[in-house]
Simulated scan of single mutants.
Amino acid sequence: ERVRARFGGLMHSAAYFGVLAISVIYLLAGPELGWRGMFFVGGLPALAVFLIRRSTPEPERWQEETSGRQERSFWQPVVEVLSPPYRARTVGNLLLLVVCVIGLWAGSTYVPTAITALSQEAGYSHAATVRLASLSSMTVAAFTILGCFAVPRLAARMGRRGALASLFALMIVGIVGAYGWAYPHHSIALLFTFLPLLGLGGASFAVFTIWLPEQYPTRMRATAFAFTTTFSRWVAAGGTFLIGYGIHATGSLTLPLTLTAAVFVIGMLLVRLAPETRSTTLPT
């Protein structure tokens, strides 16, 4: 318990170490591998599942609940997270995660697309365009890793709500700067100056790695975590379709992606939907 929050932030950074690694591979051998080769490389980490299953011990608290799990139905934890007194916080966490996912897909995922478009407009070669796109992804991933390292301290000092709201604010500035200012001015250098903010703001997911477990008891903790982090992606997919439609309708990334900053403004207003759990231990 003493180091849980700190290592939660470190653990979440692993996803972005993966983004950083694949960006390096794309930088060094992207044109040679092609999309099929990159797709194959991206699937290799799935083999780690076998190592994890064999080497990672189950938590003691989970083992202590063995008899209770056998007496409950498979769906009972799902029913519990959607019933009082946990329903309100589950819905709140779900909405906050929808904000995070839309921000990830809009703010970070479109960065290589924006860089590629600007590079092609500037007349760069295909190889140079690939390098710049890779460097943009690497920059965002590197700063997200730094953000994940900083989240535990930020959450301890400002609280879980304050930390999340601060990262949402960084995303607002980064999105407006990158897509509302740099991109329409056709400036690759200016766009790169806002990528660190998008990266740091993208560490908002690490807040939930610490925060969600603190809101639910052992018997439903994994279910609540899986439900909110997974179902939020289904909900946010609708926003992604709207962004795609907006890009198609306007013929530019500028307006649709800049408007996603409004989602984070709403998110800053919604942080009180989930309880503040700073200085608390995991509920049993």
Rank of each mutant, 00 (worst) to 15 (best):
L255W: 09
S166E: 10
F227N: 06
T223V: 11
M11H: 13
S137C: 06
G107A: 03
L97I: 13
I102R: 01
E214G: 02
A155K: 01
S187D: 04
F231D: 00
F241Q: 09
F192Y: 06
E71P: 12
V3S: 15
G103E: 00
I243E: 01
A106E: 00
I22M: 11
S125L: 06
V3D: 15
M38G: 10
V79F: 10
T113C: 05
E32V: 15
R221W: 08
Y179V: 01
W75V: 12
L104D: 02
A165I: 06
R278L: 12
V99I: 05
F40Y: 14
Q76Y: 11
R160F: 03
V78H: 05
T109A: 04
V101G: 00
L118M: 04
P217N: 09
F39N: 12
R153E: 13
L95N: 03
Q120L: 07
F225L: 10
P184M: 03
S187G: 07
Q70A: 15
F74W: 15
T228F: 09
R6S: 08
S232Y: 05
G92H: 07
A29H: 14
G147A: 04
L27F: 14
S119F: 01
L154S: 07
R233I: 05
V91D: 02
P213H: 09
S232F: 03
Q63Y: 12
W35C: 13
I175F: 01
F231L: 03
F264N: 02
T116G: 13
L47E: 13
T129Q: 08
G123V: 05
A189T: 15
R69D: 13
L255C: 08
W75A: 11
I188K: 03
E60W: 06
A178Q: 03
T139H: 07
S166H: 10
M268C: 13
T116V: 12
R89V: 09
F194H: 02
T90E: 01
R6L: 14
S83M: 04
P283D: 12
R61A: 14
P112E: 02
V3E: 15
G68R: 15
T284W: 15
V111A: 01
T223H: 07
I115L: 05
A155I: 02
V78R: 05
L20Q: 07
V78D: 07
V130D: 07
P31Y: 09
P84W: 03
I115R: 00
E32D: 15
A156I: 11
T254C: 03
S137L: 04
R233M: 08
Y245P: 14
L95F: 04
L146P: 05
L20I: 13
L242F: 08
S119D: 01
G123Q: 07
S136F: 03
I266W: 12
W35V: 14
E65C: 08
T109S: 04
S73V: 09
V176T: 08
S23H: 10
P152D: 04
P196W: 00
Y124Q: 10
L146I: 08
S134E: 04
P283T: 10
V81G: 01
F225I: 11
A114D: 00
L47P: 12
L257C: 03
L96F: 06
V24K: 13
I115M: 05
H185M: 08
Y183M: 02
E32H: 15
G92Y: 05
T113Q: 07
V151W: 01
V173T: 10
A274S: 08
A150V: 12
